[in-house]
Design a protein around this nucleic acid. Sequence first.
DNA 1: TTGTAGGCGTTATCAG
DNA 2: CTGATAACGCCTACAA
Lengths: 351, 351
Amino acid sequence: MARSLPTVYEVAQRAGVSTATVSRVLAGNDRVKPDSREKVLAAVSELGYVPSGAARDLAARRTGVLGLCFPDLAGDQDAESAEDTTFWYDEVIRGMERAARRRGYAVLIAASHASDDVELVTQVAGRCDGMVVLARTVSVPVLERIAQRIPLVMLAGPREGAEQGHDIDHLVVDNTAGAKALTGHVVGFHGRTAPAFLGGVDSADSDARFEGFRAAVAEAGLVPGDRPAAVGDFTTAGGARAVEGLLAAGGRPDALVCANDQMAIGAIGALRAAGLSVPEDVAVTGFDGIQLGRHTRPSLTTAVQPMKLLGESAVRLLEERAAEPGRPSQTVELQVWIELRGSCGCDGPGA
Amino acid sequence: MARSLPTVYEVAQRAGVSTATVSRVLAGNDRVKPDSREKVLAAVSELGYVPSGAARDLAARRTGVLGLCFPDLAGDQDAESAEDTTFWYDEVIRGMERAARRRGYAVLIAASHASDDVELVTQVAGRCDGMVVLARTVSVPVLERIAQRIPLVMLAGPREGAEQGHDIDHLVVDNTAGAKALTGHVVGFHGRTAPAFLGGVDSADSDARFEGFRAAVAEAGLVPGDRPAAVGDFTTAGGARAVEGLLAAGGRPDALVCANDQMAIGAIGALRAAGLSVPEDVAVTGFDGIQLGRHTRPSLTTAVQPMKLLGESAVRLLEERAAEPGRPSQTVELQVWIELRGSCGCDGPGA
DNA sequence: TTGTAGGCGTTATCAG
DNA sequence: CTGATAACGCCTACAA
């Protein structure tokens, strides 16, 4: 595709030095006579030289690129609902990009559409110095193979096999504590007596949050169910559908603790459509702390994930393992913090 | 960084074939005896082989990666305000990723922090088959150099030099028509008589939108100013500040046409804080059609950019130029559509 | 259908 | 400080 154009050789020739010197100048901090340096730089700019990343990577055995793979949740759905489905991933992408850039890396992203997962993820893996994979993107065996080649951290999701000594590192947040605090606030401070949990299908994170919910409910002297009152697919539309189903089935919660923000927002819409008001009739809480939640009306009470720290921790884990490939697999758990806003009945700034 | 591990040679040996055969199998659709294919596949999986992207790219002269560079608007600001600054970029990133994936590419992203722009952008350029650069990311001369090597399309922003025969393609939306329609609706349908334009600093897009504003105002028999009533930096916070300044200076518009959605949202907040109601006292419109605008209260009337189409068009332009490197530089202009919601006084779905 | 061998553009190791 | 030169891991004619 790319037109073949100037290579180090042309630059070297034009500058009257060897390719080695050109390489040194471009590498930056090597010892080369200022004079030669200038000549090289001049040649580079005159020729419009752009080094080949492929050749550089091959020779240097490092790419300066970190990979980020996430599930293509929207892939199977209609375009409409696909739109509002990825706020959480957006923030992860941004967070990673910033943290990576600060450490000198670019970020290669790819969503996997379930079917072609192995293909794409492997391709990405072959191009970077380390990669972050979000939960539910691709099967663990595939990840293990990749982790055998480059540092790999799994973000969120189950830590299955973590004890089996493979070399995937894990980065998670304290889901249980967050959900417990949220639930405790709603039943404790706001005195709700019929709280329900809106879970996400097939998700270790949702499960952990549900555990937090149950713990708080039990502590309040109430009896929690042993399963979420309803489940959705983590999207706004899914949250709305779940609530519709719950109401249709006769459910009448006075508080709804949701597995993530997007479903909470959908839930609020559905509750309203059913003639219920939030937070008066039903207090609602989310999880994640996506930006959108600050701007909705009512604004969303939620457990905020430390995005910046997540990105930085991921990069750090990657670098640490790169430096010491054989070290035991490690799990880092970050804290979340609760932000009380309008949807639970609190009136924080902008509620 | 990466541990050195199995190469084609090991795979070939283990499968009892030549590296050429391994390569063919991995490439997919070549003619190789089913028997050999199986043996190769087995060896691959037993060895946990992951091909080196660098070596592959170097030999194949193509990477299967498209680059996407955008300005790091948030870089210079405090962490707080940095958060709500990139909704538009998020959507572009998503749109590109989807369109690219559909065509078999992964996406390499990098934000440039103004200072180190050349470095980073060049590095990205060296690693992909083509790249998209958002307006205001890096200087045109640098872009021209890169465009000399790989297909490059500039998204939004000025088309300066487009007539000078360089080979950068441009992808834009009809800013003027969008702003004109929005303004026309506010002054025409809603009968506002004192509309003001909230512009963005140093932006060809904002300028074009302002032109649309002026045209509509003039057509309504009113007298438009020759400069925006206020300007911001395209962020929510910037929009709020701009409105505060406008009001402090005695401005009392009954309609505010904003250069983008984020500023419009900030503006609404500031208007409210000043005791004015939206849309009753002041009708507000945005531009871009970010998802957030659907969820705010009131929801935001805006000109929606066709994100999906933008991504697809960008990839198409890249591929076309790759196929025919010497073709003349091309500009594609996409239409926007107006969505009337609550902030202008209309009550669309969910207003 | 399969194997052989040369080359892709840089970096890095050595001598000078 | 600088210059040859051997990798780097894979692809792809070309030949068999």
